[in-house]
């Protein structure tokens, strides 16, 4: 555990808490892509199956359980409790266009051709593109609430911090996981346009609106 990894994990945790708070306080999931949230639940459910096969640390297990349970709660809130506020008309990204190619790639490019390893690889690849329905939705509506942009900034920063963690681990521990690094870079690159808008608009007190 190094400082980049720890801040990265805390940023990920903060993102999830921000999203849940936004929904709970406003009793609304307006502006949030339910499809991205379904993908995140799928990401956690397929990645953390090793909860049952290996124990790493109390921190590790606690975080895994937190991510799995909160992602399921988020999907429940969006599709059941606050369903009336869900903006389905703008959430039109086709999930099969992500899940099918990512599933195929996980079968072809993995560290080991075993069920758990393929599911882990699927999860890593899927996470890298899981935000696309959310970004697609924002490009259709042309704006985002400020709390939603804070959520997205924390969520995007988490993987960017993991990249620093991987650089650190490569130099000081000789650790290198090509699949995680490539997918993590792709994931971070997808956020760059948003990061730019966040820094130039939201941090200056303006609402995030996209150029037409």
């Amino acid at each position: 555990m190094n400082i980049f990894r720890l801040i990265g994990d805390m940023s990920h945790l903060l993102a999830i808490v921000l999203l849940l708070l936004k929904m709970w306080k406003t009793r609304s999931c307006a502006g949030i892509s339910g499809k991205s949230q379904i993908l995140f639940a799928l990401v956690f459910a397929t990645r953390y199956l090793d909860l049952f096969t290996a124990f790493i640390s109390a921190y590790n297990s606690t975080m895994k359980l937190f991510f799995i349970s909160t992602s399921l709660v988020t999907v429940y809130l969006m599709y059941f409790k606050f369903r009336a506020t869900y903006d389905a008309n703008h959430d039109t990204f086709r999930l099969e266009f992500l899940v099918v190619p990512v599933g195929g790639l996980a079968f072809l490019v993995n560290h080991n051709f075993s069920p758990l390893e393929i599911l882990w690889t699927f999860s890593i690849y899927l996470e890298s593109v899981a935000i696309l329905p959310q970004l697609f939705m924002m490009s259709k509506t042309g704006e985002a609430e400020t709390i939603t942009s804070h959520y997205l900034f924390a969520l995007g920063s988490y993987r960017a911090l993991y990249i620093l963690n991987w650089v650190f681990r490569y130099y000081f521990e000789g650790f290198f996981d090509l699949i995680a690094v490539v997918a993590g870079c792709v994931q971070t690159i997808l956020y760059c346009d948003f990061f730019y808008l966040y820094i130039t608009k939201v941090l200056k007190g303006k609402k995030l609106s996209l150029p037409a």
């Binding site: 790493i56 080991n112 051709f113 069920p115 758990l116 390893e117």
Partner: peptide, 10 residues
């Protein structure tokens, strides 16, 4: 299952 390389990251 035994072929799974243990991952310590989240």
């Amino acid at each position: 299952l035994s072929n799974f390389v243990v991952k310590d990251e989240l």
